[in-house]
Amino acid sequence: MTTGSITLSDDPLVRFILRRADDALVLGHRLSEWCGHAPLLEEEMALANIALDHLGQARALYSYAAEVEAAGHDEDAYAYRRDPVDYLNLLLVERPNGDFAHTIVRLWLYSAFMSLWWQAMTASKDAQLAALAARAVKEVAYHLRHASNWVVRLGDGTPESLRRAQTALDLLWPYAGEMLTSQPDEAALTANGIAIDPETLRQPWLQRITSDAAQAALRLPSAPFSQQGGRRGNHSEAMGHLLAELQYMQRAYPGAQW
């Protein structure tokens, strides 16, 4: 078998699917890093559950990408045998976890968007994606509830938890715009009703975030959404470290199974 890195097709549908699969895999990996470190036993389980939901979404999307690409790749090849430049996830999801507030604020910003995104995708003309969306929309609704409840409790909690939540929001805000930005190579898919233009979700997303932030006594930053590039494969240093951990076993022992 081939054991080196794979090269991706530039088919727009494959890239469209991989972008969301990579978001789910990378965020799921980040959340799984909390195993054994969560501030409460109860939260340990909650974060692991949410991590596994993301892993499940990633697997389903990779399988479908493999079917569409028809280049002999499987979900393992996508996850374990791509170099950082071939990963198409948002910069937001690859950010290191930071403290608990940082992890929760990121999950909140992302889930608020994804709950809208999956909801819209249930109407996709692509039957397979619409079916995946019907399942994912319930999972993400819960992720958003869990994250937003924590955001309110942290923001409206103690001076220390407010300070940490506000710091997290200030640091993550510049990364939040990438998921709201249309990708040029998805225009045709959007016109055909297969994909959706994330710009159309910008206002509803902002409304949800603004309303939660108000409850949490958090101040929305005015900084621009300056950090973008993951969707095109331009990643931060953090991504290399993340993949080193995620891919280690398959890179060191190609094709290993157990």
Binding site: E42, N149, R153
Partner: peptide, 20 residues
């Protein structure tokens, strides 16, 4: 049983711990 800050968090934790 479980620990949680309030009713809503307790319900979420119960869902995550006992209905997986």
């Amino acid at each position: 049983s479980l620990h949680a800050v309030d009713v809503a968090s307790a319900l979420e934790a119960a869902r995550d711990l006992f209905t997986r």
